[in-house]
Simulated assay, not measured.
Amino acid sequence: ALCKYLAHHPSALPDGARIELGAGLGMCGIAVAKLDHARGANYPVVCTDGIPSLIPYIEANALANGVSLRAAHLLWGDTAATQALLRRLDRCQPGAVLGADIIYQLDAIPALVATIVQLDPKVALLAARLRDHEVRDALAEHTRLAGWCVEELQRGWGEQNWDTVILFSLEKRGPVVKEVAHNAVSQQSGPRQHLCGIDQSRTGR
Rank of each mutant, 00 (worst) to 15 (best):
A1I: 09
L2N: 02
L2W: 06
K4P: 05
Y5Q: 02
A7T: 05
A7E: 14
A7V: 03
H8M: 10
A12T: 05
D15V: 10
A17L: 08
I19N: 06
E20M: 02
L21S: 11
G22Q: 07
G22M: 14
A23W: 05
A23Y: 08
L25F: 11
G26K: 08
M27Y: 09
A31G: 08
A31E: 13
L35E: 12
H37E: 12
A38Y: 02
A38V: 01
R39S: 07
G40H: 03
Y43I: 00
V45H: 08
D49Q: 04
S53D: 11
I55M: 10
Y57V: 06
I58E: 01
E59F: 07
E59H: 10
N61L: 11
A62E: 08
L63C: 11
A64G: 09
N65G: 09
G66V: 10
G66H: 13
V67C: 14
S68C: 08
L74Q: 09
W76A: 01
A84I: 03
L85N: 04
R88L: 02
C92A: 01
C92I: 06
L98D: 02
I102Q: 00
Y104P: 10
Y104L: 04
L106A: 10
D107L: 06
I109V: 15
P110Q: 03
A111E: 08
L112G: 02
A114I: 02
T115R: 01
I116K: 05
V117M: 11
P121E: 08
K122H: 04
V123H: 06
A124R: 11
L126N: 01
R129F: 02
L130N: 12
R131T: 05
E134H: 15
A138D: 05
A138K: 14
A140V: 10
T143W: 12
T143D: 02
V150G: 02
L153A: 15
Q154R: 07
R155N: 03
D163H: 04
D163C: 05
T164Q: 01
V165E: 05
F168Q: 03
S169E: 14
G174K: 13
G174R: 02
P175K: 14
P175D: 15
K178W: 00
K178S: 12
K178R: 15
A181P: 00
Q187L: 08
Q188F: 06
Q193A: 15
C196A: 11
D199L: 13
D199M: 09
Q200P: 13
T203Q: 15
R205D: 11
R205A: 14
